[in-house]
Design a protein around this nucleic acid. Structure first.
Lengths: 338, 338
DNA sequence: GACTGTAATCGAATCGTTACGAGGAGATGA
DNA sequence: TCATCTCCTCGTAACGATTCGATTACAGTC
């Protein structure tokens, strides 16, 4: 018992395969009588065209892949929302792929085997050289939150990122204005460029204010809540006199708040700043001051660039979107000026 | 300039197409010399097999679709985590599809056009009759959080759901034990079975305790935070003497807490319970008492059942997973007994 | 030396569509 | 009446892989 094919439809409608195909694609080009007969046959057989065969023939799938590191995390919801909105306008179906644990047969094979027409890649487990290899005129790629080498390695790769440097700078400036002059930094893994940039911008703000950033303690963590909590412990055990924490993302900042709470330290003693502005940031106690990333806009922009690339545009210049400061209660102004 | 095909590889290696294919699939069955030559040709041409062609021929894609209503919401992260874990073991690639705004060309076409080998469906915008139509031995479906008609409409559909009735009952019992005897309920849209069941279980607990649930005010809302806030306003304006709110999900409960806060009403006066145990529930002030759904387990179970169905097992009985109570600060015990 | 068995390789059909060029039937105009 | 033009419809060759039965080469056996 096989599913009916276009051939079966043709037979029961008493027409040729080509005519059925034409009814499927451009009904107005078929005479009314024939069209009705074919459509009836389609209905009675419950025929549904085989997408794979179609894809093979027209060398397109109408599908773009979105590659994320992990699908969890509030971080991605908005991003995907932005992508979906634009994708709908372009008549494209985005499919979200989680991390490829296994290089050989993880979701990355959708990319390698050209089962998709375009890709938006956030997962930084997929290297740029890999992407250069897989990308091409038939499969352009938009990379998120990565710096791209100045002369693009491939004419079919571009990127969208947020201004991490600028965001870090905003954070630094805010803490300085609030009177915190002895900050510490909790950053992400070394290979995460984003947190590097955030730290750089942060340091620049302090440097401009005449404070040498080389004395600022820096702990490398892993972007998770528990990682942040642990990093804060480490900082406390170090025993330096710090009055503020800049965490390279919100999740770690949550961990920091927890550790501070268990030690009975309030944000008047040690202020806390995050980065990302995840939904939770508004809800924790105290609400977290942070740097807002326009994730939805990032998604929409990425999809827009991808759409253009899929229409043949080459060497599209990368975009950088700017961040904004969101002041909440975790960075209260220091009462007595020094 | 076309991408190289298996034919090109065959030509440069001086062998037949079949041999190249054999090298690709079962290298050990090809003599060493030939194998080396072919592999070298593959490398030099940067040949990558076309997945679509392969799919067409072997009538499989190694891909399962996961259909969610919207990708946002903390709710789904864990679910997807559970699915991915099991999928990896089964050598399957899950792809996540957002809501199909447009029936004709949204992500649902992956289902209709059989571009996937199986589906896990949460999006309740996809009707059961549609699923019955699309499902089959080559494309089984697992439905999440829906009640299925007793004799399954299709041998290739099964389901995983949580015990909403039981969860509602747990909530009711807890509120009763804490001394809240005048509750109100904020529930979801009528078509959402889950919230109906939760309400039913909740009522049962009160009925067993001798309180007639028909007097309990019920407001239908939309599962969103703002919807919950508004529903709470409505309840307050109604002016009845209520001492507790049972919200059919956590997000609405957050809205309830907000409204109560703006009116200066504490949870000692009106207690609040949610349902789902989203990550945020732990962080709001006061932390929200709620009913925990084992989402990760739901995902893993769904994927497990789907895997079995894809191996040919028919009429797999649906599963129901149980919930558990998570007591936090939003339902303090009523000090003075009546 | 003829026969059998095995391993390596190949040719051709097939999966289910799309799309191009050609053919046939009427209609139109000279 | 014949040539020309439309409008429908059809046959057939792709698309790029897999797969099965056939063929060849060569070693081993009696």
């Amino acid at each position: 018992m096989r599913l009916p094919t276009i051939r079966d439809v043709a037979r029961t409608a008493g027409v040729s395969i080509s005519t059925v195909s034409l009814v499927l694609r451009q009904p107005q080009r078929v005479s009314e009588g024939t069209r009705d007969r074919v459509q009836e046959a389609i209905k009675s057989l419950e025929f549904r065209p085989n997408g794979t065969a179609r894809d093979l023939r027209i060398r397109k799938s109408g599908t773009v892949g979105v590659f994320l590191r992990n699908l969890s995390g509030p971080y991605y919801s908005e991003l995907i929302g932005g992508i979906e909105q634009v994708a709908t306008d372009l008549s494209l179906t985005p499919i979200i792929c989680g991390r490829s644990v296994d290089q050989e047969q993880g979701s990355i094979r959708l990319l390698r085997e050209r089962r998709i027409d375009g890709a938006i890649v956030l997962d930084f487990g997929i290297s740029l050289s890999e992407l250069v290899q897989y990308s091409g005129p038939q499969l352009p790629v938009v990379v998120l939150n990565r710096s791209l080498p100045a002369p693009l390695a491939s004419a079919y790769i571009t990127g969208v990122r947020i201004d991490d440097d600028g965001g870090g700078y905003l954070a630094g400036k805010h803490l300085i204005e609030q009177g915190f002059l002895r900050p510490a930094v909790i950053t992400g893994p070394i290979e995460a460029e984003a947190s590097q940039s955030r730290q750089r911008g942060f340091f620049q703000a302090y440097a401009e204010h005449g404070i040498d950033p080389t004395n600022v303690p820096v702990i490398h963590s892993d972007f998770t809540e528990s990682g942040g909590a642990q990093a804060m412990e480490t900082l406390l055990n170090l025993g330096g006199a710090i009055d503020a924490i800049f965490s390279a993302n919100d999740e770690m900042a949550l961990g920091v708040l927890q550790t501070l709470a268990t030690y009975g330290i309030s944000v008047d003693q040690i202020a806390v700043m995050g980065f990302d502005d995840i939904p939770l940031a508004r809800y924790v106690q105290p609400p977290l001051t942070t740097v807002h990333q326009p994730m939805s806009e990032v998604g929409a922009t990425a999809m827009e660039l991808l759409g253009r690339a899929m229409h043949g545009e080459e060497r599209i210049p990368p975009r950088t979107l700017s961040t904004s400061l969101v002041v909440r209660a975790s960075t209260p102004s220091k009462a007595r000026p020094q």
